[in-house]
Design a protein around this nucleic acid. Sequence first.
RNA 1: GGGCCGUUAGCUCAGCUGGUAGAGCACCUGACUUUUAAUCAGGGUGUCGUGGGUUCGAGUCCCACACGGCUCACCA
Length: 496
Amino acid sequence: MATRAEDLAGQRLENLDNIRARDIDPYPPSYHVTHTLEETSIIFEQQEKAAETSPPSNPHLAGRIMSKRSMGKMSFYDIRDGSGKLQLCFRRDLFGQDKYAVLSDIDIGDFVGVTGNLFRTRTGELTLEVSDFTILCKSLRPMPEKWHGLVDVEKRYRQRYLDLISHEKVRNTFILRSKIITAVRNFLEARNFLEVETPVLQSRAGGAAAKPFVTHHHALDEDLYLRIALELPLKKLIIGGFDRVYEIGRVFRNEGISTRHNPEFSLLECYQAYADYEDMMRLIEEMVSHVALTTLGALNLLRDGKSIDLTPPWRRLDLRQAIKEYSGIDFEDYPDTDSLRSVMIKMGIEVDPTKMRANLIDELVSTFVEPELIQPTFLLDYPVEMSPLAKRKRGNSRLVERFEAFIDGVEIANSFTELNDPLEQRERFQQQAKEHAGDEEMEVADEDFLQAMEYGMPPTGGLGTGIDRLVMLFSGEKSLRDVILFPQLKTREHHA
RNA sequence: GGGCCGUUAGCUCAGCUGGUAGAGCACCUGACUUUUAAUCAGGGUGUCGUGGGUUCGAGUCCCACACGGCUCACCA
C-alpha cells in the first residue's frame, strides 16, 4: 500500500515522466541569468521614476516556484531566488495550448528560468509576463506548508535547507553570522593581524581543560586528538616571529550538548606580541563595537527589554570585588579549598565535594556574578590556579592577569597576559597534574610547547572569543542551535 | 545522567470520561484571462514514534524503549 508520501512523490515522478515524454530535459546543465530578482525590481522601479528609459528587455531570470494561482487560461506563479521574489504571469494565448499544458507538470518547488516583459498588475505588483520558460530542476518532494512553514524543531535542524526555504528570519540569522565573521576578519586585518591555520588533528589536546575526541591515524598507527583550543600552536607562531596572529577555527569538545554547548564550535583566538591584557581589553571592545556598527549599524542592542550599550570603554570589575559584592564571600579570606568549601556550605550553597578551590570560585562567579553582567563588563584578575597559561599579576602573585568579558550575562571573551616563563610554565603544568590526578579534563603538559617556549616567547597578550555566542548576542537567538547551520543531533534511522 | 513536556496525513494542528481518525495548507479531478493565504464544486491520501501489557475494544490507560525540546547536572 502506498503511503501518502509515496503518492505525492509518485505524482511528481509522473510529472517528471510527462516532461521527459515531451523531450524536455528536466535537469539542464545551466541557464544564463541576466539579473537577480532583486536587481530586476530595483531596475524596474528606477525606470518607472525616470520615465525616459524603458525597462530591461528580455531579462533572463530564474528561481524556485513557491506558490501558484491558476485561473484556467492564465496562471500566476511566485518564484524566489537568493535575493528576493517575483510574480510570474503565464498566458495561454501567448504560448498556445501545447506549451501552456507543460505548466500542469510543473510543481511548487521546481526551479524555472523565465524571460518576458515586466509590468504592474492592477494591484500594483511587479510581474513578469512570461514569453518563454525553461524547466531548470524538477523537485520530487513537497515543500513545507506555506504559511506556518516548518515548525517541527527536529526537522528544522535535521533538514536545515527546508528551514531556510520557509523562514526568512532563519536565513537572515545566517547571513548575519557570515557578516559578523567578515567584520571580525576585516577588523583584525586592519590591525595587521595575520590569519593562520593550525592543525585540527593533534597528538595531544592542549590549551584548555576539556575532554577531547579521539581518532586514529592508520598509517602512523597513532591516536590523534581533535583540538579543544587554538592556543598552543598560535603561541608557537608568536615564538616564530609572527607578532600578530589569529585563527578562526572549529574546535571540538566531547561534552554535553545544550542550548549553549555544541560539540564542535567556532573559536577566534588572537595573539599580539608585546601586548598585555589591558591591550586585549581595548582590542575586544573595539572589535565588538566595530562588528556591531558594520553589521547592525548601531552600538545598542535591545535584549528582553534591556538596552545594552556596547560603546567602549566597558566596565572593569575586579573578580574578587565582584564575588564579594554579589555573593558576600571574599575568597582571599579562604586561601585553600577546605576553608572556601566550608564557608560556601555554611551559606547553604550546594558544593560538589570533588571540586578544587578554582572550581569553587568559578561556581561563585557563575551563580552570583555572571547573571548580573548585562552591560559589557570585564571581570579582572583570576586566581592563579584557574589559569595555568596566564602570567601572574604584577603586585599579587596569587592572581593572574586575566579577564573574561560578559555581555547580557554571557561570556564572550577570555584573555590573559600570556605566561612566557618556560620554567614557571613547566611548574604550573606539574601543579595542575598533581591537583587533578585522574581528571580527564586537566590541562596536559605539552613538551613540544614547552620546548618552543624555551627558545623565548615575547611578552604577549592573547584573546579568545566564541564566535557562536557572539552571533547569539547579535542575533538575539537564545539557542546555539539557531546560530549553527547543522547542530549536532543524535543519528536517526532515515525514513522518508 | 536526572526531571518535565512532546511525537497523529507531505506540512501545521485537533481528537473529551477507552468505541475503530479529521480540519487547513499541499496534492488529485473539474470551472475560471489580473490572481496574490486566489475563488468555487468534488476527492482523505494514515503502521496515531516503536515494542509489550490491561481490555470485548487502545490514538486515548499502564510499562519499556527511541528521537526531540526545555531544564538541572556537566562544561576550570
